[in-house]
Design a protein around this nucleic acid. Structure first.
Lengths: 93, 93
DNA sequence: ACGGGGCATCACCAGAAACTGATATCACCA
DNA sequence: TGGTGATATCAGTTTCTGGTGATGCCCCGT
């Protein structure tokens, strides 16, 4: 899930969607990417549950899934917490 | 920064280090990866500030930088918060 | 119902990134 | 001080992934 935010284009899409739901054409226009490219990224994000698609007539509106983002954040927070808790458990070679 | 956790091998390294500081040989053994491979991943993580290296005689101990993980988590949390706050601002085409 | 625009999907290509093998360096120990 | 083990680095290969072009579908307006 975090894996998907690695690509700059996908990070830009997520960032743009943080400003509110938008349709594919908005993203294509705002980010200056090709339409198939945006569509492919959206598919990846959709399959991972990071964004949700909402057909609206001829358009498709996308919005972020805040819960998924929170879950990813929680995972990182957990790693940080575990790192702090075990910082003295140095393993011997 | 989040970008680095995309690779499964690096995610595994970070996960292993969450259990406590360890030297390169531990990671090589635990993850079943080649030593140069692990070293290269550690270099990438080191340069991004995700892990810190600590020379210890002939060995090099690595430990996670909890602050960096928290910063990444905060970024995701911020995205989620913005997504919730703007969920009604649907842009018209 | 016909034309057009928005969107998704697919096949392909190019660039990037990971893994490997060889090698250099350094610290420890006998 | 020579040998060994741990680590880092580098060049080369392979694998993966993102971008593009072409195409088809669907919905809307006329």
């Amino acid at each position: 899930m975090v894996r998907l935010l690695a690509d700059p284009a996908r990070a830009a899409i997520v960032d743009a969607l943080a400003a509110g739901p938008a349709c594919t054409c908005h993203l294509v226009e705002d980010l200056g990417l090709s339409q198939p490219n945006v569509s492919n990224h959206l598919r990846a994000l959709r399959h991972a549950g990071v964004v949700k698609a909402e057909p609206y007539g001829r358009y498709t509106y996308y919005h972020l899934n805040a819960d998924a983002l929170d879950a990813a954040a929680a995972h990182l927070t957990d790693l940080a917490a575990r790192a702090r808790a075990t910082s003295d458990n140095r393993r011997e070679c």
